[in-house]
Design a protein around this nucleic acid. Structure first.
Lengths: 223, 223
DNA sequence: AAATAAATTTAGGCATAACTAAATTATATC
DNA sequence: GATATAATTTAGTTATGCCTAAATTTATTT
């Protein structure tokens, strides 16, 4: 069986692969809040288990087996987040931390029971897709809010889940996944966004907007 | 923070203290499926943390601080068992194993939310008492079924939770905590028990009966 | 009281997974 | 293309928590 640490490394490699492409030892170490030397050590171990491809100074890649494990852990994490949110009422800025510990520990049986309870959901409380039993992820084509122009209408698709304070802040504007809004004005020179949510005008700073991903809506009247 | 292993040791010392009294290194090691030398090592560590009293060759005792931790873990375990059973439908012979992993990992917040969901319960699915938030345990005066005589009526109070196969077996007779029955006949020479559950006569072997604890009922007509 | 048996402890090792510090390789600059 | 800078790897250390084997202490028996 895999250790929790190994699972965390695989999950992180998967996520970094998604975003950037090449996953270097340094990037991985920074992501996991670990020294590069530690990452090198674990990567070597994962290589002997055939869960990653690796050549020194060249970065890491997941093998098919490694990707399967990574997706399994991500599925656990996101199902747990949604379960804690819906079944136990844990606030959305708290579910990440809790799921981080539970994801390594729940059985497949409990996973299946939560999945059933939740009605086989496809997204967690932050809008991140939940891989299905077979590791299939529904990819969305959402864009960072920072790419929006004046007058553009959209629906919140996803919000980064790691910073609890940021989530509370975003939640205070009701910017949950599924919420529709329209951009009233984008201030020039990398300034903040003024948006209209359900008739209320709200100002969102650029740094915050970077963490909000949206689906553009073509016809505002259809929202 | 304490490691999972340390928590398991404290929990085990508590349980052995409850049953037997003196807790020796050997007994503790056997209970935890570990070599005596390993137990000695951990006991020494726990002593430096002032969680146990210990003098070599003299056995271990929990300090007040150690008892608090032990009860906290036991509370987690039993709340989790009941939660998994009631909220997710995990069969009663499976909840122990699952809770064993989760008990070290859930937050006080989740503990409180499960407690509320369950209506502040006082016993887990096997009838074991759930310590309250302050570590107060309601002690019952149940006796092993093996002490029963012909004609004695009683109610199942508690069943040992560690052996999954045994639990399935006991469950097949419907001998869940709260179930009433009457002893029809105790076979002589350490023989099996014939009992009457809701009009059905069932034979329970002595080895199984040792793991079933009951509350005697004085007046059979009042059950 | 001495000898034997049983329990417990000490001593030394192993695996995991982190760390620091030094050596190496790769990349960027002049 | 040589050199400076940055990234990465190797080597050696630490802490957990387990192990085995040998030494010690306690308990029992004669």
């Amino acid at each position: 069986m895999l250790t929790h640490a190994a699972e965390d490394y695989l999950k992180s490699i998967y996520k970094l692969q998604e975003k950037g492409g090449k996953v270097s030892t340094g990037i991985l170490a920074e992501y996991l809040d670990v020294k590069p030397a530690s990452a090198t050590g674990m990567i070597k171990k994962l290589k002997t288990m055939k869960l990653v491809r690796y050549e020194r100074y060249r970065g890491v890649t997941l093998t098919a087996a490694g990707k399967t494990v990574a997706l399994e852990i991500i599925r656990h994490h996101r199902l747990l987040e949604l379960y804690l949110f819906k079944a136990l009422g844990v606030p959305w800025d708290g579910v990440h931390e809790e799921a981080e510990k539970l994801e390594h520990v729940i059985s497949e049986d409990v996973e299946a029971r939560m999945d059933e309870f939740l009605g086989y959901p496809t997204a967690d409380p932050h809008g991140a897709p939940i891989p299905d039993k077979n590791g299939v992820v529904i990819q969305t084509d959402s864009v960072p809010m920072t790419e929006l122009q004046d007058g553009q209408s959209c629906v919140v698709a996803e919000v980064s889940d790691s910073d609890s304070a940021l989530l509370r802040h975003i939640g205070s504007f009701n910017l949950y996944p599924g919420t529709a809004f329209r951009v009233v004005e984008v201030a020039p020179f990398e300034g903040p966004f003024t948006i209209d949510i359900a008739g209320q005008e709200v100002v969102i700073g650029r740094e915050v907007a970077k963490h909000i991903f949206v689906d553009k809506v073509e016809d505002p009247d259809n929202v």
